[in-house]
Design a protein around this nucleic acid. Structure first.
Lengths: 417, 417
DNA sequence: CTTAGTTCGTTTACCGTCCCAACTAAAGAC
DNA sequence: GTCTTTAGTTGGGACGGTAAACGAACTAAG
């Protein structure tokens, strides 16, 4: 009685954009590419059977992908009845995806090949807080040039470059506000495009938590989960939220302000000037003050001072220092309170602790999970689990490269030549 | 250098589903239908110019839609240079979309025509709390039959039927938990399909807040907003969340548990057994206890008793009763606290107060907005505004009918005959 | 009244993509 | 050596969107 394929994404949730054959082709090319990403190595026949595409169509699509050097044939199956199948894999060698991260104390560059293998991972110290945006962008551009030049020298074409910024970024790549960097209304995309001489590849700018959660979804242990939250544990606590396989940005891109969830109007003063923000209970500064009371409570800590203190806390925790263990348990409970709020509203399958939280996770998670379980409206915490990030501090940069691969996987393929 | 239409939704965010011609056709039919919904009356030439589709394609698509009786020609333009255009509108008369709502004290039925005009709006009292699920479903089926029979008698074909349930509903239409009804693991969809004799139209079951926010998005004042939250103000406070034009459900469908946001572990006891839930501060029960201290604080109120008390509160507020005004200001502040948490995480453009909150909104919103502004991390509350629902208590049922129209607009068209 | 100009919508020819079915290819089984 | 089984290609058909030409129906102006 009713026409239309019930679950065809093509016909659902589309905007006003009409479709034509080019779209069908791009969609199906992307289907094959994604299938190969998750199921490689496999044969044309496998792809046809699994995706529902016709054998002839798959042959045509695969030929196209091989022409574009995105896919490669790699040997045959053996020891089976029937004609042996030609196995296909993603071709890692001709391309690279680049992610950069700028933070208050360092710059990071990560490059991945098409298959998601890490090609390089660079970091350099950087005192961005003191500098003007112009200097920071010059440094970022220098790093980008070095990275791209290294990749080109290895015979790779750059598929795209994404910059992670710890702040609010609009759709055009303008950083509206980045408190940690002291930036306001900085058009990072335009400046960087100019500094790089208008390169041919796509250049995007995105919030660091949003990119980190992409990396966690694709490269981390939570591989393939569609409902996922990443908590940055840096100068501030931001949440990158993926819901139903899509980044949640909000109307103006302000979503994920986890650190400033208002808990108690009579609580401690937060860096933002308000009282009782979650960050004032569970932020890095609060952890240090609670665990190392000898560190000056009066003075605000600068981000570059976090590292040594966190190392010290981790050392004491490993040595079973009772005070530090108590401090971490208490911090975990506050974090769990915030996560319970998150879980009641968003109901993610998983909350990943990143940044400085990663190293302290063994001592934070037990009390956080306890608190989450106690404060979840749904039974069994609604299925939400708290885990440690499987990625190191380059998560956001890796996410930037992942973002480029996502675009490829969605049909924005490079041309054959 | 890069292939693919940058903004084609068809090639973005798709699952593993491949595309074919039927999808292109369905997509473009839906594009025309949606254009007519928002821009009617307009001509074929208008549609071609606005959507980017070819004139010939639009002609073909419109012919198809007229054959299916979804679109109707209605007169010509006049007083213009050139050949007059034939104007097109959605044809309201041949079809109907039905939404039902079951609640602890009433059943509601709403029917809309294709253009969104209300065809009927029925309500009957119902004491579901005492009854078994079987009785409730029998009552629901009876109401559905009467509704469908009335519409058929008027010569309309039913496009679909959606049931709103105040509880957690899974993707197959099984109600996992509905505290207000005392239900657990009730397969509403299956039972209702059986009771209605396996009708040919699609039958869905969905959470009431999710449907109410759909109604608010399409029929309410916030028409067309992509980031929107609806707060039910009934026996409990649920949030229906639309983010980037999609319902946010969470990994297990538990998203939107707004009423049980954990605020203060030392706070008042909530109906769920925990302490300090938002509902214990700002729920209907809390409003009544705070505004009408003479009402027995000790005994739990049953939902059927809410109505008279809320009427009384509204009467006193209109009469400028100082105690009641203070109580509402305080309630609004608590509500604003919860909304600030929501805004920091989700950043909606708009939060709509529904249910019993609607009538009290004039006295709740000022303090709620104040609190939201004070506790938002982003400037200007991140653009989030708090508004009164434009729909009456049939919002969820209307949303059920809207849900059916959404499916049509997404390409699941009825067959020509 | 006639002619030019404008706009609407259809008609026609064309092209790209997918599907189906038949075909070839290459192995193991008997 | 022939049969069976599975892999992948080829050619024909259908479908749907595109482009350009065309007829239709109106206004404007001489």
């Amino acid at each position: 009685m009713f026409v239309g394929r019930g679950s065809s994404v093509l016909t659902r949730e589309n905007g006003p954009q009409p479709a034509d054959f080019a779209d069908v082709r791009a969609t199906n090319l992307a289907v094959v590419l994604r299938h190969l990403r998750t199921h490689a190595p496999c044969s044309r026949a496998d792809i046809a059977a699994t995706t529902g595409l016709n054998k002839a169509t798959v042959s045509s699509l695969v030929t196209d992908l091989i022409d574009r050097r995105l896919v490669r044939e790699v040997g045959m199956t053996e020891n089976r009845i029937g004609r042996p199948a030609v196995m296909l894999v993603l071709d890692g060698s001709p391309y690279a995806a680049v992610g950069l991260e700028i933070n208050s104390d360092y710059l990071t560059a990560v490059a991945l090949d098409l298959a998601g293998e890490r090609l390089l991972s660079w970091r350099r110290a950087f005192s961005g807080t003191a500098g003007q945006p112009g200097q920071a962008i010059a440094a970022l551009a220098a790093l980008a040039r070095r990275t791209v030049s290294k990749l080109s020298h290895d015979g790779r074409r750059v598929l795209g470059l994404t910059v992670a910024v710890p702040g609010l970024v609009d759709a055009d790549g303008v950083v509206e506000l980045a408190a940690g960097l002291g930036w306001q209304r900085v058009d990072v995309r335009k400046s960087l495009l100019a500094a790089l001489g208008e390169p041919g590849y796509p250049l995007l700018v995105e919030n660091d938590a949003n990119l980190a959660v992409l990396a966690e979804q694709r490269l981390g242990a939570q591989n393939g989960t569609g409902d996922l939250v990443y908590l940055t544990g840096g100068a501030s606590i931001g949440a990158g939220i993926i819901s139903d396989f899509r980044l949640l940005r909000g109307a103006r891109g302000f979503a994920g302000e986890f650190g400033h969830l208002p808990l108690d109007p009579a609580g401690p003063v937060c860096g933002c000037g308000r009282r009782g923000c979650l960050e004032a209970y569970a932020g890095v500064g609060a952890v240090i003050r609670r665990a190392l009371p000898d560190v000056g409570i009066e003075t605000a800590l600068s981000p570059s001072e976090f590292g040594p203190h966190m190392d010290e806390i981790q050392r004491l925790a490993k040595a079973d220092d009772a005070h530090v263990l108590d401090a971490l348990t208490e911090t975990g409970a506050h974090l769990g309170h915030g996560i319970a709020i998150l879980a009641n509203l968003i109901n993610p399958a998983c909350v990943v602790l990143g940044g400085y939280f990663t190293d302290l996770a063994p001592w934070l998670i037990p009390s956080a999970a306890r608190e989450l379980a106690a404060r979840s409206a749904a039974a069994d915490s609604g299925g939400t689990v708290i885990v440690t990030s499987a990625l190191d501090s380059s998560a956001a940069a890796a996410g930037g490269a992942t973002r480029v691969l996502d675009a490829i996987d969605s049909g924005a393929l490079p041309t054959p030549r």
